[in-house]
Design a protein around this nucleic acid. Structure first.
Lengths: 342, 342
DNA sequence: TTTTTTTACGCAATCGTTACCGACATCGTT
DNA sequence: AACGATGTCGGTAACGATTGCGTAAAAAAA
């Protein structure tokens, strides 16, 4: 099945004009007579002519499409971020092509190269858990391909970044647990490669330090697949609660991680024993039992800012050399799960 | 900023060959000598040559991209469906361009026309709440443009459709409430234009009829924005619970609707009074308090089936005239919210 | 009337790639 | 020796649209 669309040639043939005249008439060039213009416009309207964007892309070397690479769409943070991206893109006349890395470095690489080859004008990317070798991104970037990182960023590539204030969000969350009276706070987090993991870990550590709570490395668990694999979290929880220094509170980093972990905690009947707080952008935190205290990220704003940066690079005449690192504040939404029951 | 990529011409120039020879060598044509092929292949590898998909699209009149139009990404059903779509598309070498209608007919139309003009090879669409005038889709379809409907379908356009068994899902959910002893079951649903609304309503009505419960029209509330506007649902709930024939159970249709409504019910402290069941693909239903009984749709399978149908149309040599209407079964996940507390 | 200017349009190249057609060796066959 | 067959490759048009340049005709200026 192929699907034929009217072209400029059809108009030219029907009106006995050349394609160049038709093209100029359509674009309202001054060197076309009013009469001819009217004819062309009317006929174009009649046959519902739409310029072929592929031909335009070939000619103008731009596609007005931008690529987005995230680990999972079915993640509240990312779906909200994409909403933000899409709203701005739509208004600026850009298409958004969304791909998922599923936390796989290989898949991410395929996605990126596919998007670049397909000719997107730029790339918005939040790195996968496994991404350590960024050489393919570096190559693209060095060739002048516009890239903006958001959420999970890297300092190996000099470009705009947009992130939440993970450090402070984590710091306040931890401190909140401390204020509530918790002392043995476990931190379950994602891949140690990720920027967000490092930043959140720092915030956690600094909050403990500020309140003179000794850091216990065995209370820190890395779930490298970020909540996508349940057994991984199960093992982390088992190891935590079997130890002699059982935690009295859990602080999780990441949306899927938080939800999966909270679900497991409930199944394992640990709910009354431990305080709980997690990074999550779920909209139903107060439906949970106990209702869930979360660190909420301004996902939509992050997405919006990221794509604005990207469009700025794309539409800039000269190579951009000054890069911004925008950091947006998180919000601590306090509910029951972090309250001390004693 | 522009981003230059190596072309077949660069190879031709460097190797003192014609572009046609290079092209054939790259595609492994038999009429190119082994030596020349080797040269070309090696040089292409060296400069990291990638064929320009835009030029190919122009020539082959296909883009290997398919467009998806849903109302909202931030909806568990749709994000899971997109996951299904994307997994198949990826393996078959297709790109997926996702757009959101935000339940607006105008936006949907712009999306569809934009995608068609941009040259996607086909369209996967779940209609918006407002969509009544489908003339623009009809036009495309009549021109031979491949379209497959999923979830929210229409019978005005003859093509493949993929849906959950909304009727039976609804029937069983309602019957379940009846078995639990509920008698005055309210049904809060979406736009009356939508196929899913009608089907679910039928299931609800038939279940009542089967058990000799008279239908009370005032127990049926239409929230035309499908849970995106909170006040709409608030009004529906207020009107329901202020009436003298107060419902003893609530059955909601739609993911966002269910979550928003359940949240409101909890806020309004109606939880102990009314049984609750809803269509939802949330993965955290058992975290809620009370844990939430849901009708779960096989979202990923729906997406997968839909895109398989679409690719089938796209790759078919002759126009497709026999269309399938695949219906996948839902799953009733029974938890506390639907249990009778008495 | 002649020259200049303006108007209004066509021709052809271009973007990157492929496909049809043709060209020209080299070889074997008769 | 002449011929066709075969193997290798190049030229060119085409996909749809834009654009610089050229130019005929009409209008204006001389």
């Amino acid at each position: 099945m192929k699907f034929e669309s009217a072209t400029i040639k059809d108009i030219a043939k029907a009106l006995n004009l050349s394609t160049s005249t038709v093209s100029r008439a359509l674009r309202g060039s001054y060197e076309i007579s009013a009469e001819t213009k009217k004819q062309v416009l009317e006929y174009a309207e009649k046959i519902n002519y739409r310029p072929n964007p592929i031909a335009l892309s070939l000619k103008e070397r731009r596609t007005r499409a931008i690529g987005v690479v995230v680990s999972e769409i079915a993640n509240n943070f990312f779906s909200q971020a994409i909403n933000g991206i899409e709203s701005i893109a739509y208004n600026r006349g850009y298409h958004v092509i969304i791909t998922q890395s599923h936390e796989s470095q290989d898949r991410e690489r395929v996605d990126v190269e596919h998007l670049a080859a397909r000719g997107v004008d730029g790339l918005l990317i939040s790195l996968s858990s496994e991404s350590v070798d960024l050489s393919y991104l570096k190559e693209l970037h060095e060739k002048g391909f516009p890239i903006v990182f958001f959420d999970r960023v890297t300092d190996e590539i000099e470009t705009h970044t947009v992130t939440a204030n993970n450090y402070l969000g984590s710091f306040h969350a931890t401190e909140h647990l401390i204020f509530e009276g918790y002392k043995r706070i476990a931190h379950i987090t994602g891949s140690p490669y990720l920027s967000i993991t490092k930043e959140r870990l720092e915030g956690y550590k600094d909050a403990l330090a500020k309140h003179d709570i000794p850091l216990n490395e065995s209370l820190i668990k890395y779930c490298t697949h970020g909540g996508m694999i349940v057994t991984e979290i199960e093992e982390a929880l088992n190891s935590l609660f079997k130890s002699k220094t059982k935690p009295d509170a859990i602080f999780t980093a990441g949306d899927r991680l938080t939800l999966t972990c909270y679900s497991l905690v409930k199944q394992m009947k640990l709910k009354k024993e431990a305080g709980f707080i997690g990074f999550s952008n779920t909209v139903v935190g107060d439906l949970f039992s106990p209702s869930l205290t979360v660190v909420r990220q301004p996902a939509a704003e992050i997405g919006q800012t990221a794509i604005e940066f990207l469009i700025q690079i794309i539409e800039s005449k000269r190579p951009v050399t000054e890069f911004q690192h925008r950091v947006l504040e998180t919000e601590l939404v306090i509910r029951e799960s972090s309250k001390k029951g004693d």
